[in-house]
Amino acid sequence: MKKIIWVCGIIAGIISVSWGVLSEAVIGDSLSLTTRMIFGYATMVLAFSLIFVGIKNYRDNYSNGQITFGKALGIGLLITLIASTVYVAIWMIDFAYFVPDFGEKYQAQAVAEMKAGGLSAAEIQKQSAEMAAMMTRYKTSAAFRAMFTYMEIAPVGIVMSLIAALVLKRRSEPTTVNV
């Protein structure tokens, strides 16, 4: 069971972070923030499909075709933890060495999109100041950055774990004796 969890978790982590790393390196700022977010979350959902693979593999090969909701959820959450940790670790390295100006680029693109969206100057000023304060904390506090990054990915894995556990749970059927 441990091997299934580790393999699925590591592969899911690598898949989930692939969009972010590739989009920063190749695409840059040519897509809107909303489009980048949609692709990012779609990649996470794709990555977390490995939760279904891990639970089904365990159920069919190590548990005689049976698994409870709790056991399936536990496997899914462990895969989520490993995948999320891989995601966070790779992002922390990427941020530190390859995109240390991420916050500035993100802010500039967000402000440009707010202007294009027709927001008032006062509203843009307000949101820009809030964003600047958060980005300062994001850049200067590795713990805050890690926590924030976990909050991006972990909820997706938790939801996928719940869905997979509900879909894949299978209890043994009681045997009936005909008298």
Rank of each mutant, 00 (worst) to 15 (best):
G74K: 10
V179I: 13
S16V: 05
L50M: 10
I5Q: 01
V167L: 04
A164T: 02
K126V: 13
S49Q: 10
Y87K: 01
D60E: 13
Y62A: 12
V159E: 02
M1A: 10
A154D: 08
M37W: 15
F48Y: 14
I55N: 05
K2E: 11
R59D: 04
A165Q: 05
L162M: 13
S84N: 12
A133R: 10
G40Q: 09
M151P: 13
M134C: 00
M134I: 02
M147K: 03
T43Q: 09
M134T: 07
A72E: 01
S18R: 05
T140M: 10
A42H: 08
P100D: 09
A112N: 07
T175L: 12
V111M: 11
N57S: 13
T34A: 15
V88G: 07
F144A: 11
V159Y: 09
L166C: 09
I10F: 15
L22H: 10
Y106M: 05
F48S: 00
M131R: 14
S63Y: 00
A42R: 05
I14D: 01
I124D: 01
F144T: 06
G9W: 05
R59N: 08
E113Y: 09
I158P: 15
G103M: 05
E130R: 09
S128C: 03
N61M: 07
L81M: 14
A42M: 15
S16G: 14
S32C: 08
G117V: 11
T176E: 09
V86I: 15
F95S: 11
G103H: 06
T34P: 06
M160D: 02
L162D: 03
S141H: 13
S161L: 01
T140H: 07
G28A: 03
E104N: 13
G117F: 04
M37R: 12
E113R: 15
Y106Q: 03
L81R: 00
M134H: 07
C8T: 12
T35E: 14
V156I: 14
A165F: 04
A164N: 05
A112S: 15
D94N: 10
M37G: 12
L77G: 01
A42V: 01
L166K: 00
L166P: 15
S172D: 15
L119R: 11
P174S: 06
V111T: 01
K56F: 03
S23Y: 07
A12R: 01
I158E: 04
L119N: 10
T176R: 08
I93Q: 14
V88H: 06
E152L: 02
A132Y: 00
L119W: 03
L162V: 09
A146T: 04
I153K: 00
Y58Q: 11
V53T: 08
I82L: 11
A133S: 15
